[in-house]
Amino acid sequence: MSQERTPHILNAASNLLGISLVIIAGLNVSHAARNSIADEIAWFAAISLATSCFLSYLALRDDTTRRGHGEKWADRIFLMGLLALISAIVVLAIESR
């Protein structure tokens, strides 16, 4: 993977982590968390995106050949978090009808 990909993963994952936390907070403030599975899906997304942030940060700090390995995992976990976040939004949209 290129050296330029890791900062982009870190930036995107941290932004999406914020969105996940806003969804979680909004569901808890509105007391809709206990009636919806979207809260649990958003928590999974938040944990995945936080892990991706951590791994991509470590890849930025690493100057050895192991960098690519951490970056690959950060990318994979980022995609899991992104899919979970999309799933949480779809569940919220369906349940709010």
Rank of each mutant, 00 (worst) to 15 (best):
M1Y: 11
S2F: 06
Q3A: 07
E4F: 04
E4S: 07
R5M: 10
R5D: 05
T6I: 15
P7R: 10
P7N: 10
H8K: 09
N11W: 01
N11S: 13
A12P: 02
A12H: 09
S14W: 02
S14Y: 02
N15A: 11
N15G: 08
L16A: 06
L16V: 01
L16I: 03
L17K: 11
L17P: 04
L17E: 09
L17F: 12
L17I: 05
G18L: 07
S20F: 06
L21P: 03
L21V: 07
V22Q: 13
V22E: 13
V22F: 06
I23C: 05
I24G: 10
A25V: 05
L27P: 13
S30F: 03
S30Q: 08
S30P: 12
H31V: 05
A32C: 11
R34E: 15
R34K: 15
N35F: 14
S36V: 11
S36R: 12
I37V: 08
I37S: 14
A38W: 04
D39A: 06
D39I: 10
E40G: 14
A42G: 07
A42P: 05
W43P: 00
W43A: 07
W43K: 14
F44E: 11
F44T: 13
A45G: 08
A45L: 12
A45T: 02
I47N: 08
I47H: 07
S48I: 01
S48G: 04
S48T: 06
L49D: 08
L49M: 07
A50C: 10
A50N: 14
T51S: 09
S52F: 10
F54H: 13
Y57D: 15
Y57Q: 15
Y57I: 11
L58R: 15
A59L: 14
L60P: 12
L60Q: 15
L60I: 15
R61N: 15
R61I: 15
D62S: 14
D62C: 09
D62G: 11
D63M: 05
D63G: 15
T64E: 07
T65I: 12
R66Y: 13
R66H: 14
R67S: 12
G68Q: 14
G68C: 04
H69S: 11
H69T: 08
G70E: 12
K72N: 01
K72L: 03
W73E: 03
W73K: 12
A74P: 02
D75H: 08
D75W: 06
D75T: 11
R76P: 00
R76H: 04
I77Q: 02
I77N: 00
F78P: 00
F78S: 06
M80L: 05
M80D: 04
M80N: 02
M80Y: 02
G81Y: 08
L83D: 04
L85G: 02
S87Q: 06
S87W: 00
S87M: 04
A88M: 04
A88D: 03
I89N: 01
L92V: 01
L92D: 01
A93I: 00
A93M: 03
I94H: 00
I94C: 01
I94V: 10
I94Q: 01
E95A: 02
S96D: 06
S96T: 10
S96M: 06
R97G: 00
